[in-house]
Design a protein around this nucleic acid. Structure first.
Lengths: 124, 124
DNA sequence: CAAGATAATAGTAATGATTACTATTATTTA
DNA sequence: TAAATAATAGTAATCATTACTATTATCTTG
């Protein structure tokens, strides 16, 4: 992977933003620095950066949000204002942390494990 | 909300399918019963059914999957074959249940809480 | 350091899932 | 049973994302 100034700028924006921006938001932002950058370049780089594990992608409400924080952490999504908050919690007491300490009201809990299932392992 | 034969058939399909189908899969399936049903009708009904909490929607890999199982449960997504398995686990011992009993290998854990955040509550 | 190899780019066209629109049809309820 | 209106089929439009192509920038190696 080569490092063009477009790629450097896109990575820099994601790394210094903790609001989990979308591709379009990143495009508008990077255009202030590189006015004639192509939207396709933004998408190509986002995919490249995710594939190389330099950033993470997360789909919320059908839109992909990018996250430069690679540390193991969870999220709280406000269904009213749409902000996706970072959470840094131990599994034992996350619920009380969210409701009592942070004051958010939980309506849904969205837990999913990704990996290779039993039957796919048999085939290898 | 009225109950047309299209709506009844779509709901029936989702309720009797545990493979978390997509809109397009449901469209192909319902067409065997109602050949001239419109794809728009399928989407309109899926939204309606989700809004009325008769089914749940879940986005995986940028595609919306529908779930007729309204009970509190978690999921395991195989990144190889793409099957989204149902899990019914207590939070304490879910990881050992998945790896030891079910034999799946976990690569990622995707945990998100949805609700109303502290600052949105202040505004009300 | 120069030059060839090739990865990345800008710009544009295409795709694919989903939504909007409109005239017509079906369901409801009084 | 008939008026009120929700839902439909069919089609066009939208919106995020991807594909394509000729050109440009980056990397590597002699």
């Amino acid at each position: 992977m080569r490092y063009s100034k477009q790629r450097k700028e896109i990575l820099e924006i994601i790394k210094t933003t903790n609001s989990h921006p979308t591709a379009d938001w990143i495009y508008e932002r990077v255009r202030t620095q590189i006015p004639n950058i192509s939207l396709g370049t933004v998408y190509r780089n986002l995919r490249q950066l995710v594939d190389n594990d330099l950033i993470h992608a997360r789909t919320v409400n059908g839109m992909v949000h990018y996250d430069g924080n690679l540390g193991d952490h969870q999220h709280f999504y406000c269904t009213d204002c749409g902000i996706l908050y970072d959470l840094d919690l131990s599994l034992e007491d996350f619920v009380s942390e969210i409701t009592e300490n942070l004051g958010h009201v939980i309506h849904e809990c969205d837990l999913q494990f990704n990996g290779i299932c039993n039957s796919c392992q048999q085939e290898q």
